[in-house]
Computed example of a mutant assay.
Amino acid sequence: MADTPLENLRIVLVEPSHPGNIGAAARAMKVMGLQQLVLVKPLRFPAPEALAMASGAEDLLNRAEVCADLDGALRGCHRVYGASARNRHVSWPNLGAREAAASLRTDLQAGPCALIFGRERTGLSNAELDRCQVLVTIPTAGCYSSLNLGQAVQVLAYEVFMAAGAESSPTGGILAPMAAAEEMEGFYRHLQGILQTCGFLQAPRETQMMRRLRRLFDRATPSANEVHILRGILTELERWAGKGKVDRKNQDSL
Rank of each mutant, 00 (worst) to 15 (best):
residue 123 G to M: 02
residue 185 E to Q: 15
residue 219 R to W: 02
residue 190 H to E: 13
residue 218 D to M: 10
residue 208 Q to E: 10
residue 206 E to T: 11
residue 198 C to P: 07
residue 140 T to G: 09
residue 167 E to Q: 11
residue 214 R to S: 04
residue 163 A to F: 00
residue 217 F to N: 00
residue 159 E to Y: 13
residue 125 S to N: 08
residue 207 T to G: 08
residue 222 P to E: 03
residue 154 Q to T: 12
residue 186 G to L: 08
residue 169 S to Y: 01
residue 227 V to I: 15
residue 95 L to Y: 15
residue 141 A to G: 10
residue 186 G to D: 13
residue 222 P to G: 02
residue 169 S to K: 04
residue 130 D to A: 11
residue 189 R to P: 00
residue 195 L to I: 07
residue 164 A to G: 14
residue 154 Q to S: 14
residue 226 E to S: 12
residue 131 R to L: 15
residue 116 I to W: 00
residue 209 M to A: 15
residue 107 D to F: 11
residue 155 V to H: 06
residue 97 A to H: 08
residue 148 N to C: 03
residue 156 L to H: 04
residue 165 G to E: 04
residue 111 G to F: 05
residue 172 G to C: 05
residue 100 A to G: 10
residue 161 F to Q: 07
residue 150 G to R: 07
residue 221 T to H: 06
residue 150 G to E: 05
residue 179 A to L: 06
residue 191 L to G: 03
residue 169 S to I: 07
residue 213 L to I: 08
residue 227 V to G: 06
residue 223 S to E: 06
residue 103 S to K: 02
residue 200 F to W: 02
residue 225 N to E: 15
residue 133 Q to F: 00
residue 214 R to W: 06
residue 200 F to H: 01
residue 177 P to I: 04
residue 114 A to P: 10
residue 142 G to Y: 07
residue 105 R to C: 11
residue 213 L to M: 03
residue 149 L to H: 03
residue 149 L to G: 00
residue 178 M to P: 07
residue 155 V to Y: 03
